[in-house]
Design a protein around this nucleic acid. Structure first.
Lengths: 210, 210
DNA sequence: TGAAGAATTGAATTACCGTTCATTACATGA
DNA sequence: TCATGTAATGAACGGTAATTCAATTCTTCA
């Protein structure tokens, strides 16, 4: 044997993989799964078509890797934020801020996951709904905790959790598609107030008895 | 000229068009734009492949016609509901109930528009976002009216409107994908309360000052 | 009834794109 | 340097499915 990978080569391979992933992130974010061809990604990454298949099984695996990246990122960030919070209300607030921050920092990835993944292969599309379901479950737990402590009025915690997640989803979609609000985390303040009021937490700004 | 369409033929043509549209509604609702072939639709409608092209320009036009049907239906139903309501709060409530009712009555069409259209051609996908934008605009007007009358606290009406629409979207998606809630209009009551509280309307169930 | 035109059909055409693989270029170290 | 293996490449392949159109069937009415 007269050839063994040297460190330099390993670095080049790693850099190439990253170039391909980055090119895919940009292309898929802009043009979606079916609107992006392997050729497009190869061109943007500056590699040959066949090269992509040395690094990833196929087009779907490439797309799925990106969606999964976004999925893990959001869940991970939220989980860490919740560690430092106690009580339903604080956990909710920390989760919301963490989610908006991580999306704002990774716009392309957010587009791939939230806007383009439903247009991909069904198996991949499911991951978005799975993320939303998991987020809703977290919210539901917090709501149930709030009700148990008497901080919240009795209510259908499942519906409330869906509503809660829905507000974020819609605002993020608007941010991704129209650029409004321009600053996602700033808009988050309004959004948090809306949801805390919606759940029944006392928040300043409510006008007493009409 | 020895042939002129008779009434009977016109009826057959109309019935065929409807059969094709209905078949497309069912296939697209279940399998999405890319997961449905013209052959599938033709088979379900009981016509030849070529026949479909006598009635509709192409696959995209067929899909777009369905999305447009849903779009018009929802807007029309909401517009009529709002006619009989006065004041921001009542208009909001009437709109919400109308939207949920019309979706519940047309589940396949709702699936095509809300679940499958994002997966279709970009031009068609835009229509869903356009609908959501228009609904948000209606909500925003009502919120501004509420603020002007002093019934609502000052707030970012645009964010509130997005949040409002988002709660409905999420619950409807859950209903379409998982069948939960089983009864959409029943769940609407919770949802309406959530949003009215979120906006700042006084609603029973808020716990005073923690 | 049969000539004229309309409606229907599905096999053939066409276009597209993901994937493969024979070939070339590169890297290693004896 | 060169023998040996690795990495990279893109033309060619293959499968899929939308769309077309020549041939057929149906409808009308003189």
């Amino acid at each position: 044997m007269v050839y063994r990978r040297t460190k330099k080569v390993n670095q080049r391979l790693e850099a190439r993989l990253q170039a391909i992933m980055q090119a895919a992130r940009e292309e898929f974010a802009r043009n979606g799964f079916y609107g992006t061809s392997i050729k497009d990604i190869a061109r943007r990454a500056g590699v040959g078509i066949g090269t992509i298949y040395l690094y990833l099984r196929n087009k779907e695996a490439l797309f799925a890797a990106l969606v999964n990246e976004a999925y893990e990122m959001v869940l991970d960030r939220i989980a860490r934020a919740r560690k430092n919070a106690t009580g339903g209300r604080q956990k909710l607030q920390a989760s919301m801020e963490a989610a908006l921050a991580v999306l704002q920092e990774n716009r392309d990835l957010a587009r791939v996951m939230l806007v383009q993944s439903p247009a991909g292969h069904p198996a991949v599309a499911e991951q978005l709904y799975d993320l939303l379901r998991r987020l809703a479950r977290l919210v539901e737990e917090d709501v149930l905790e709030g009700i148990a402590r008497g901080e919240l009025p009795p209510q259908d915690a499942h519906i409330a959790a869906l509503a809660f997640v829905g507000t974020f989803y819609q605002v993020v979609i608007s941010w991704l598609k129209e650029g409004i609000p321009a600053d996602l985390t700033a808009a988050g303040k309004e959004l948090i107030a809306y949801n805390l009021r919606g759940l029944g937490y006392p928040v300043e700004g409510v006008i007493e008895n009409a």
